[in-house]
Amino acid sequence: MGVTIKDIAKEANVSYSTVSKALNNSPLVKEVTKQKILRVAKEMGYEPNLAAKQLVRKKTEVIGLIWPTIERIVLATLVTNISKAFEATKYSMILSVDSAETSLDTFKKFQVDGMIVFAESHQMVPEDTIPLVAYGVSGKRKVAYPIIDANHEQAMEQAVQYLADLGHHHIAYVGHLDTEDALQREKAEGYQKAIKKRNLKQQSIDTSGLDWYDGYLAVEEIIQLPHQPTAIIGGSYDISGGIVRSLHEKGVSIPNDMSVVSYDNIPQMETMEIPMTCIGVPVDLLAEEIVSTIIHHIESEGSDEFIKKLTPSLTERKSAGPAPQS
């Protein structure tokens, strides 16, 4: 039989209620007494009865994360950072890569306090009474839950401005264009707006996917263009990796002949074939914002209806440089 609160109270020579308050970090217990009780509990191998605590608090301190896939490195990195961000809180996280409907049923069984969803489209956000926060594109619609928006349009504005300042007048964008994924669409639209604003030459290449090989194949289309770009903006980490490999095989020097800037600001950009200049909200900051927002949404018990647009940042490395002289 496991150690109980009454056992700890007897060993520490304090009352049962004092032990209970100490284990729940109550300010009503003197610090010296609290530390004594915690030490005794640890020495006796006390394991709290989580089920009983949940009944009292009516909280599980568990948050569910619905994610479409962990196959892509960027998403896996973000999931990892979200999990790490939870470590500094009293909450735990459970991850489901099932459909939104199946995940929701699972989370109900676990009685999660809240959910984080990846809102690639409106349909992916479940309508339910469980507090939720979505990572996605805010758009102009009204929502009954907080949305963390990584501001893809501003990221493309900054990427185009950076390359223009380096003297590039023909900048191509390589990404997934024909898709229901609102995140990918906003990147492409952001690029087009930034190019039009500066009267630069534009060329969008649809990869029809977000994988490494999609970026690799896109270079074949780029080299057949009548007017060759001097810079490419890749729509994702994986796409940009394929672009770099294909350019290298074709003898195109980066950045002397072609500059490449990638979306996705993750640490892995540093260890690519060529250290990649990248744009986007740093993944650790994005994760911290998502975690802090869902916790606030749960604990405030209010109907937060807001859009939080984050600020992208550009990290310079070795894949971009001045435009080559004609």
Rank of each mutant, 00 (worst) to 15 (best):
D7N: 11
S20C: 05
N24R: 15
V29E: 02
E31V: 15
V32H: 12
Q35G: 11
R39T: 15
V40L: 08
Y46C: 14
N49I: 12
A52Q: 14
K53L: 12
Q54R: 15
T77F: 01
N81W: 08
F86Y: 12
E87G: 05
S92D: 08
F110Y: 15
Q111N: 11
V125Q: 09
V125I: 15
D128C: 15
P131T: 10
G136E: 05
Q154F: 00
D165A: 07
H170Y: 08
I171F: 06
G175P: 08
H176G: 00
L177W: 02
D178Q: 12
L183Y: 04
R185L: 13
Y191F: 06
Q192N: 06
K197A: 10
D206G: 02
D206Q: 11
I223R: 07
I223V: 13
I223F: 11
L225Q: 10
H227F: 13
H227K: 12
I232F: 10
I233L: 14
Y237N: 05
I239G: 06
S246F: 01
S246Q: 12
K250G: 10
N256H: 10
P275G: 04
M276W: 04
M276P: 00
I279K: 01
V283T: 09
E288S: 03
E305H: 07
F306R: 08
S313G: 08
S313R: 05
L314S: 02
L314I: 13
S319M: 08
